[in-house]
């Protein structure tokens, strides 16, 4: 019963703050709203006993939203907490597509005859995921490691103003 009340509270917070991301009139507030939505979902994962993943989601997304706020200040060239903004296109079409998608998903969720639960959760779920990652599912994590490394390299190549052997445009301008 307590779990139900907590879940519904978190669900309302998650969806309401998700809507607020595209309703508030500044990017900084939108970032905070998205962070709140992620924290609510991370706490909901704790209700499922996913202590490790829930904490990972909360910590990671709070940090990510902090970085996002810095990006907005960098790119928008203004105080994003004070400047109202509304930069949308195809609002009605987007609303229609989102509404239709929700209707289809909701119909599937309610009409499908979901199977019964198979098996019981391990006594220590964090230990179980640790054993899986270091044992039978190690290939998955090794692949993820390579993907993350490739992401670091690709992001740097895209973001840096010069290549490995190019001159820095800033140095050229200074000279």
């Amino acid at each position: 019963m307590v779990d139900d009340i907590v879940f519904w509270g978190l669900a309302v917070v998650a969806v309401a703050s998700g809507i607020a991301v595209f309703r508030v009139d500044s990017m900084a507030r939108a970032t905070y709203a998205l962070a709140v939505s992620f924290v609510a979902v991370g706490l909901a994962l704790l209700l499922f006993g996913l202590d490790y993943l829930g904490v990972v989601v909360v910590l990671m997304m709070v940090m990510e939203m902090a970085i996002m706020a810095i990006y907005m200040i960098m790119f928008m060239g203004m105080n994003p907490a004070l400047m109202p903004m509304s930069m949308v296109h195809g609002k009605r079409t987007s609303l229609a597509v989102a509404g239709l998608t929700f209707a289809v998903l909701a119909a599937g969720i309610l009409l499908v005859d979901w199977p019964e639960r198979r098996g019981a959760p391990a006594a220590d779920l964090t230990l179980a995921v640790g054993r899986a990652v270091m044992g039978g599912k190690m290939l998955v994590m090794m692949t993820v490691s390579a993907v993350l490394f490739a992401t670091i390299v690709s992001a740097l190549v895209l973001a840096l103003p010069r290549g490995r052997y190019d001159d820095d445009p800033a140095d050229e301008a200074a000279s």
């Binding site: 879940f7 998700g18 991301v21 595209f22 987007s94 969720i109 309610l110």
Partner: peptide, 25 residues
């Protein structure tokens, strides 16, 4: 019920991904 909440979050995000003009949004 959990899936309905997840679907709502997904669709709100879908609206944003389609409608917003700023890359960060």
């Amino acid at each position: 019920t959990v899936l309905l909440v997840a679907a709502a979050l997904f669709c709100v995000g879908l609206y944003g991904a389609i409608s917003q003009q700023v890359v960060v949004m």
